[in-house]
Nucleic acid binder design. Structure first.
Length: 391
DNA sequence: AAACGTTTCAACCGCCTCCGT
DNA sequence: AACGGAGGCGGTTGAAACGTT
């Protein structure tokens, strides 16, 4: 308080809008555009403050607003974006055409948050609530998780900041990426992964208790596909490509103990796995650029990530007895969707014990579910529109 | 049918960021 | 660089709708 109101509120109406007010606002904007919101109410003959008019327009009257129930895909998108972005509703809303940030926020608070909680997932961190129960040493594990979570968050923020800067050069960057290297790379993906790796790299300096990322080997792929490459000294490179389904995809190839063959798990997003939203114009342009490139070949690198303890989104991975982590399969139709649907009413059954190297039964399922959960988030990172304000 | 509790969502509030001066 | 105006954003509120007893 002690703060001047956004506009002179004396005599201004508050509360629900009447159909007459809606009509006035609608008619004025259709004819003149909104122009200055502050000046609009007087011009439109409304006893409202400009802010109220803007809100009414953006959240309700705008013609391109879709109302009604959220589809499952929309739900997934919200949850996954929330895992990445937190409560940045406007950023999330840009990925849900015709939905407003307010609507998404309401839907999150009234539906999704509760559903995640029921599933045993913390709706704030998107981490399993009872991590501690899964570990023999709950306290130290929790501390480790906290530390890794901080790294994750730090990486994310770093990536966001960088992309904000780069977004101003966005119009040039796409051409650059396509023209210079022949290997297009969406800045968004690059940055989050850089940030991600950056956090890992930092943490490995003089610290054995954190992930070390090592490229194992490489081989060429004929078909264009997205490849996430981790290397120790360089930022991970995401060579995004277009699969048969013309959707950009991300590919994780894991291996155990340095072997690219034994125990390697190849991950590939498939067409029907998850379609978070319509491909944006920019992705279409991006795809077109890829298709037009003369020789687009991407490298496929196996990766092995050594780590101790758990890394934050530890649900993404399974930790082997050797301390290597494996990226699990990108969820199929049965994955995240069912996770949401099947657990909307019943609490997910979580394993109550055992070490990380051996999760059988419900524990294994638990890890599978959460692995899929985070995989789908990473998949989203890759398939988001490049003009997204996501990061 | 009434009372009560819960859920939903439009709208408000205050802070923040951007941008022009 | 500092300032102020305008718009944007996220948290919160409260009335209405809905469900339960």
């Amino acid at each position: 308080m002690g703060r001047s109101p956004c506009c002179d509120k004396v005599g201004l109406k508050k509360g629900p809008w009447t159909p007459e007010e809606d009509q006035k606002l609608l008619a004025y904007i259709e004819e003149h555009g909104h122009g200055s919101w502050r000046a609009l109410p007087a011009k439109a003959g409304l006893q409202r403050c400009g802010k109220s008019c803007r809100l009414r327009w953006t959240n309700y009257l705008r013609p391109d607003i879709k109302r009604g129930k959220f589809s499952l895909q929309e739900e997934q998108t919200i949850i996954q974006l929330h895992a990445l972005l937190g409560n940045r509703w406007s950023a999330i809303a840009t990925h849900l055409p015709k939905r407003t940030d307010n609507e998404i926020k309401n839907y999150w608070n009234t539906h999704l948050k509760k559903r995640l909680a029921k599933m045993g997932i913390d709706p704030v961190t998107h981490k399993p609530k009872n991590d501690a129960l899964l570990s023999g040493d709950g306290q130290s594990k929790s501390a480790a998780n906290l530390s890794h979570m901080a790294q994750w968050e730090s990486a994310r923020l770093e990536a966001e900041a960088r992309l904000v800067r780069e977004s101003k050069l966005r119009s040039h960057s796409l051409q650059h990426q396509l023209g210079n290297s022949g290997v297009p790379m969406p800045p968004r993906c690059q940055d989050i992964l850089k940030g991600w790796n950056g956090a890992w790299s930092k943490s490995t300096e003089g610290n054995g208790g954190v992930p070390a990322v090592t490229a194992i080997n490489g081989s060429d792929l004929e078909s264009p596909t997205s490849t996430l490459t981790f290397s120790e000294n360089a930022p991970p490179v995401l060579t995004a490509g277009v699969g048969d389904n013309s959707m950009p995809m991300i590919e994780f190839v894991g291996s155990t103990s340095g072997s690219s063959e034994t125990g390697a798990v190849k991950e590939e997003a498939e067409e029907d796995n998850w379609k978070p939203f319509e491909i944006s114009t920019h992705v279409a342009e991006y795809k077109e650029g890829i298709e037009n490139s003369l020789s687009f070949t991407s490298s496929l690198h196996d990766l092995s990530i050594s780590m101790e303890g758990t890394w934050t989104p530890e649900s993404l991975i399974r930790t082997s007895g050797t301390g290597h982590i494996h990226f699990g399969n990108v969820m199929g139709d049965e994955g995240f969707t069912n996770l949401l649907l099947n657990n909307s009413d019943d609490q997910i059954s979580l394993s109550d014990g055992g070490d990380d190297s051996d999760h059988n039964g419900s524990g294994s399922e638990y890890y599978e579910d959460n692995k899929n959960y985070w995989n789908s988030i990473l998949n989203l990172v890759n398939s988001s529109p490049s003009d997204s304000p996501m990061f």
